[in-house]
Design a protein around this nucleic acid. Structure first.
Length: 648
DNA sequence: CCTCTTGTG
DNA sequence: AGATGCACAAGAGGC
C-alpha cells in the first residue's frame, strides 16, 4: 500500500524531470504497473495431457512461470505432490491436480485427473529448462518436494528471499502478508480448505475446484509479487546482493536439510535415564528440605516456597505478581539455603532431558536414521538463519553435562565430523567498521584481544594479566557487540552498576572510535529507520523512533548489534555459497551438514579430513573477497572428531 | 495463548 | 522512578 504510493511518487518525479534529463543522467527504473488483484482472474483446471502441454508450451514461450505446489502430508512420511499451479500472467493461472483422491459423493462426478507420473514427466523439462525462470515463494520448500521426484528446479527466483533482502526486520515474509501489504488483498487462508485440529483434512481431500482457486491464486500472487520485488531490487540496488548472497543458498541449504546428521539414539536414551535418576534424587532432597511436595517446575509454586515458606530474603514480584526465580536470583540465594542450588541443578538436568535427550531421539527420521533440521532463511532481522524442528543451533556446549548431548551427534563409520568456526568474527567486524586502530592492529598481530582490552581498560600489563581481569574484559567486549549498558555489564560480571559504568567509561576513553561509531549508528538509524551490513544488507529497526525511552534504548542496542551480527551472517553465507563448488573442484566428498551462525559442520571421509579442512578454511577466510576487503584478517579454526564435541 | 526459563551464537 | 546487553527456538506451567 505504502509501496504503491511510493511508486506513484517516483513516477511523477520522473515524468516531471523527464524534460531536464541530461545524457549523463540515467532515470531511475520505474515500478511496472501491476493489474489490480481483484480484476478478472481466469484459473483453469487442467485434467488432460493435451491441456497440460498447452500450458507448458505457453510457459516455454514466455520464459517465466510462477509455481505453487500443494502437498499432502502424512505423519512420518515425506510430503507428496497433490497438485501444482502454474501462473503465466496476472490473473492467468492453471491448477494441475495429480494426487486428489476421489472421495465423497461430490467428487464422483468431478473431472478426472492426470497421473502423478505423467504430469511429472511433462513438467520436468519445464522446471529444469535453463531458459525458463521459475518463480516461487519459499523455493527451498518447493525444491525439497521436487527433489523427491528427481527434479532439480532451475533457474528460480524466491519472492520470500527477495522480500527479506528488501524489508528484513520490517514484517514477516509470508505470501499472505506480502499480498496484503502490496496489493491490499487477502489470500484465501489454507484452513478454509482443510480445516483445523481434529477436522483437519489432507489437501488431496479438497475438491479440485476449490484446490484450483486456492493454488492458482497463490501462483498468481507470487508472479505479481515477483514483478514488484524485482523492480524494487533494481531501484534499491539490491539485485546483486540477492543474487550473490541469498539466492545461491537455496540448493545448498536444501542439501544440508536433506542430508541431516547422524545421532546416536542409544546414547541419548542412556543419557535420558541418567538424567531421570538424578532429577528424582534432587527432587527428593528438595522435598525433604522443604517439608512437602510441590511442582518444582512451576515458578509460581517455587517462588512461594522460597520466599514465603522458607522465608528467604530478596523476593521480588514482577509485573505479573509472581516472584522472580531465574538463575541469577537462585545463585544469590544458594549460600543461604540448600534448596536454591538443588533447583538450579534440577533445572539444568530437566532442560537437558526434555529438550535434548528425549526430544532429539524423537526427531530421528525413520528412513534416514538421521536428524533433519529446517533452516528459516527469512526470519531473523539481522540476516542470520534460524533453525527449527528441531533447533540444532542451540545444542549445549558450555557445561560438561551439556556436552554429553553433543557427543551423541556422530559421523558415519569411516567418516569424521569437521567443525570450522570463525574466531571472534563480530569483534573483528567491530574493529573494522568502527575503525579502531589499536584493535585492528591487535587482530593483525594475532594478539589475545581480551587480554589486550583488559590491559588497556584496567591498566594491568599484559605480562601480569590474571584470569579474573581478562574475564571482565571479555564481558566488556561482548557488551560492546550488544550495545552495552552499565546495568547489563554489572549483572554479567557481578559488580555494582556504578563500577560497571566506570569500566565502560574507561573503555570509551581508550577506544573513542567505538563510542563515535555507536553515536553515528544511532543517528543514521534514526534518520533512515535501518542500519546496514558491510555488504549492504539493510536491517530495519522498527523501534528506533519509539516515544518510550526504554523501548527506544532497546532499539538503539539492536541498531548497534545488527551491523556486526548481520555482516557476520553475510560472510558465512558467502562462504556457504562457494563451498559446494570448491569441494567438487578439489574432488572432495565432504557433506556440509550444519550452520551455527559462525560455525560450519561437515561430515568427511576420514582420508579426506585434512584436505577438506584446508579447503574450507581458505574459502571461509576469503569469504569477503573480492567484493569487500576487511582491514582485519578473518581467522577460521578447525577441529575434527568422531562426534560434534570432539570436533571442537 | 502468554509468560518464564534456558539452550546456542 | 523504573527499566535496563543482541539474535533466535522450545518446553513447561497456567490462565
Amino acid at each position: 500500500m505504502e509501496f504503491r504510493a511510493l511508486a506513484t511518487r517516483m513516477t511523477q518525479r520522473l515524468s516531471m524531470a523527464a524534460a531536464a534529463v541530461t545524457p549523463a543522467e540515467r532515470p531511475e527504473p520505474v515500478i511496472p504497473e501491476i493489474p489490480a488483484f481483484t480484476a478478472q482472474r481466469t484459473y483453469a483446471l487442467v485434467d488432460t495431457i493435451e491441456g497440460l502441454d498447452r500450458w507448458i508450451e505457453a510457459a516455454e514461450q514466455s520464459g517465466v512461470v510462477a509455481i505453487w505446489p500443494e502437498t499432502s502430508n502424512v505423519a512420518g512420511t515425506r510430503p507428496t505432490l497433490a497438485g501444482i499451479a502454474l501462473a503465466l500472467a496476472p490473473g492467468l493461472a492453471a491448477y494441475v491436480p495429480v494426487g486428489h483422491r476421489v472421495s465423497g459423493s461430490l467428487d464422483l462426478d468431478g473431472p478426472g485427473e492426470l497421473s502423478l507420473e505423467a504430469a511429472i514427466e511433462r513438467l520436468r523439462p519445464l522446471l529444469e529448462d535453463p531458459g525458463v525462470l521459475k518463480i516461487g515463494h519459499d523455493v527451498k520448500t518447493t525444491a525439497h518436494l521436487l527433489s523427491r521426484y528427481g527434479i532439480g528446479l532451475a533457474p528460480y527466483d524466491c519472492t520470500m528471499l527477495m522480500s527479506y533482502v528488501l524489508d528484513g526486520g520490517q514484517f514477516e515474509h509470508t505470501i499472505e502478508n506480502l499480498v496484503r501489504r502490496s496489493f491490499e488483498q487477502e489470500l484465501t487462508p489454507l484452513k478454509e480448505l482443510v480445516g483445523t485440529g481434529k477436522s483437519l483434512i489432507a489437501f488431496a481431500e479438497v475438491a479440485r475446484e476449490r484446490a484450483r482457486d486456492f493454488a492458482a491464486e497463490r501462483a498468481d500472487a507470487a508472479l505479481r509479487l515477483h514483478t514488484l520485488l524485482k523492480a524494487r531490487l533494481v531501484r534499491e540496488t539490491m539485485t546483486a546482493f540477492y543474487e550473490t548472497i541469498e539466492r545461491p543458498l537455496v540448493p545448498a541449504v536444501a542439501a544440508m536439510e536433506r542430508d541431516g546428521i547422524k545421532v546416536d539414539r542409544a546414547a541419548l536414551a542412556d543419557l535420558s535415564r541418567d538424567f531421570e535418576r538424578r532429577i528424582a534424587e534432587i527432587e527428593q532432597a528438595i522435598f525433604r528440605a522443604v517439608g512437602n511436595d510441590f511442582n518444582i517446575g512451576s515458578t509460581k509454586q517455587l517462588g512461594d516456597v522460597l520466599f514465603e515458606k522458607l522465608g528467604l530474603p530478596g523476593g521480588k514480584k514482577g509485573k505479573t505478581g509472581a516472584y522472580g526465580t531465574d538463575a541469577s536470583i537462585l545463585e544469590e540465594l544458594a549460600p543461604l539455603h540448600e534448596v536454591p542450588g538443588h533447583v538450579l541443578e534440577w533445572r539444568q538436568l530437566s532442560k537437558l532431558k526434555s529438550t535434548y535427550a528425549d526430544a532429539l531421539g524423537e526427531e530421528i527420521d525413520r528412513d534416514s536414521g538421521r536428524v533433519h533440521t529446517s533452516y528459516a532463511l527469512a526470519v531473523a532481522a539481522t540476516g542470520r538463519f534460524s533453525s527449527n524442528n528441531p533447533n540444532l543451533q542451540n545444542i549445549p556446549i558450555r557445561t560438561e553435562e551439556g556436552r554429553r548431548i553433543r557427543r551423541a551427534f556422530i559421523a558415519e563409520p569411516g567418516h569424521l565430523l569437521l567443525s570450522a568456526d570463525y574466531s571472534q568474527i563480530e569483534l573483528r567486524l567491530a574493529a573494522d567498521v568502527a575503525d579502531v586502530p589499536e584493535l585492528k592492529q591487535a587482530f593483525r598481530d594475532g594478539l589475545d584481544i581480551h587480554a589486550l582490552t583488559a590491559s588497556q581498560v584496567f591498566g594491568v600489563p599484559l605480562a601480569e594479566m590474571d584470569a579474573v581481569t581478562r574475564r571482565r574484559a571479555k564481558a566488556i567486549n561482548f557488551g560492546i557487540i550488544y550495545g552495552i549498558s552499565a546495568f547489563g555489564l554489572g549483572a554479567q560480571i557481578s559488580v555494582p552498576q556504578a563500577e560497571a559504568g566506570a569500566y565502560i567509561r574507561a573503555y570509551f576513553e581508550r577506544f573513542p572510535a567505538i563510542r563515535a561509531y555507536m553515536e553515528r549508528i544511532k543517528t543514521d538509524c534514526r534518520s533512515t529507520g535501518y542500519v546496514e551490513t558491510i555488504f549492504g544488507r539493510k536491517c530495519f529497526i522498527p523501534g528506533i523512533r519509539d516515544a518510550n525511552p526504554a523501548r527506544r534504548a532497546g532499539a538503539e542496542r539492536q541498531a548497534i548489534n545488527a551491523p556486526l551480527q548481520g555482516s557476520a551472517a553475510d560472510i558465512i553465507k558467502r562462504a556457504m555459497a562457494r563451498i559446494p563448488a570448491a569441494l567438487v573442484r578439489e574432488r572432495l566428498h565432504a557433506r556440509m551438514l550444519l550452520q551455527v551462525h559462525d560455525e560450519l559442520l561437515f561430515e568427511v571421509p576420514e582420508a579426506e579430513v585434512e584436505e577438506t579442512a584446508r579447503v574450507v578454511k581458505i574459502v571461509m577466510e576469503g569469504a569477503c573477497a573480492p567484493h569487500c576487503e576487511l582491514s582485519v584478517p578473518l581467522v577460521v579454526e578447525t577441529g575434527r572428531g568422531r562426534n560434534w564435541d570432539e570436533a571442537h
